[in-house]
Design a protein around this nucleic acid. Structure first.
Lengths: 212, 212
DNA sequence: ATCACTTTGTGAAGTTCTTAACAAATTATT
DNA sequence: AATAATTTGTTAAGAACTTCACAAAGTGAT
């Protein structure tokens, strides 16, 4: 079963489904209907069915979906590739919080190692080896192509070096804008942006409420 | 100038624009054309113009946009409401990292106070007052409606309490799925989900490359 | 001032995503 | 075994979003 062209919008919902399914499994749910899942994740049942359909015929008419089977398939599709090496660039407060996160839930590969400008930070923290930034090219794991960026200085320069090392996916925790060449995907994770969006959303909900 | 109905997709790009504009300003750029900005943020110039148009006639034909003016307007629109009180729920590693973040860039209101299950954490950290979770209803600031969630236990229960206290916007750092009533907006911020998306995106880019 | 040039803001076309509606498939019941 | 009741997967309609294309409005040089 090879994956058809999955729409971007669908792609963004997959992690959400997986999270919800894991929760359901924990609650002892073994089978679920699209309609039931719908009220759980607040996405139309028909959207859910279409989203799932890109990965094959996962359900059975008149029965629904097997929770275990779904989890298995999502795990496979979402790259529970534990060989997937991820590096952490920046071992400041946020970086340390990420290293200490024991909740990666065995869903993606763990952080292989970390790098930091501050040479005095070199060593092992929370079980993760930290190298000085100068050793990036030397110590970056073979075949690694995802980096988590939690630095706040020399961002563009660092990104350029990472890209030169073969990084093609960046989880961006910085608060700055930087440029990447085509072919490199960036996923921005930013509290401030999130709050801004929320403020805007809740404001427009408020004004809508007032109009009524 | 009152805001027309802004499409969701546009909304998600506003923080990105603001970030880029701040960067441009720092680089000494005083005026910018949509086409120029386009290559900077990797969004079509016409999309940029339409996005901007929801907030009024911000540009001048034959001239472009004034960077300062844009920043000002985005600041205003994205709720640089410094009275906007934000609470932090959960003062663990991640929570502390957020409290210590000095990079909120004067863009959104600061964290007003924090709450944690662990009563021994009560006190002041990084200049933020931490209260025990039991005092939530008592100590939550007047008119506060945004909360950052970095807890890992009793999530649903805590969310319910927050909603009862008038919270209408949640920045969700937990790795669990929870339910909120209509009218409450949730913005999920999740490294794992981000990595999953990245893995998927970069994988499909790879297979596309192979086909060619 | 006039004219050539540039760039915005926006109708209209095109694309992508969502939802309604229903045939096909399966379960459950009699 | 046949029938009723579900629920999936998908076709087609609708909504949301993006992009094209160009009139309108400005700039800047002569």
């Amino acid at each position: 079963m090879t994956v058809k062209k999955v729409p971007k919008a669908t792609l963004q919902r997959y992690p959400l489904y997986l999270k919800a399914l894991r929760r359901l499994k924990k609650n002892g749910v073994q089978r679920i209907m699209s309609k039931e899942l719908s009220s759980f994740v607040d996405i139309e049942s028909t959207t859910i069915r279409r989203d799932f359909s890109f990965l094959g015929n996962l359900g059975k008419q008149g029965y629904g979906y097997d929770v275990d089977r779904l989890i298995e398939i999502f795990n496979a599709q979402l790259g529970v590739d534990f060989d997937e090496k991820i590096i952490l660039v920046g071992a400041g407060n946020l970086g340390r919080a990420l290293m200490n996160y024991n909740k990666w839930d065995h869903v993606v590969g763990e952080i292989a190692c970390a790098f930091d400008m501050d040479e005095s930070k070199a060593g092992v923290q929370f079980g993760v080896q930290i190298y000085p930034m100068t050793m990036l090219e030397e110590k970056i794991p073979e075949g690694c192509h995802i980096a988590i960026l939690t630095i706040s200085n020399n961002i563009q320069e660092t990104v350029d070096r990472l890209v030169a090392c073969g990084i093609t996916g960046l989880v961006d925790f910085t608060h700055e804008h930087f440029l990447v060449p085509k072919g490199v995907a960036v996923k921005v994770v930013d509290v401030v942006s999130s709050i801004q969006e929320l403020v805007f959303i809740t404001n427009s909900m408020d004004s809508k409420a007032k109009k009524q």
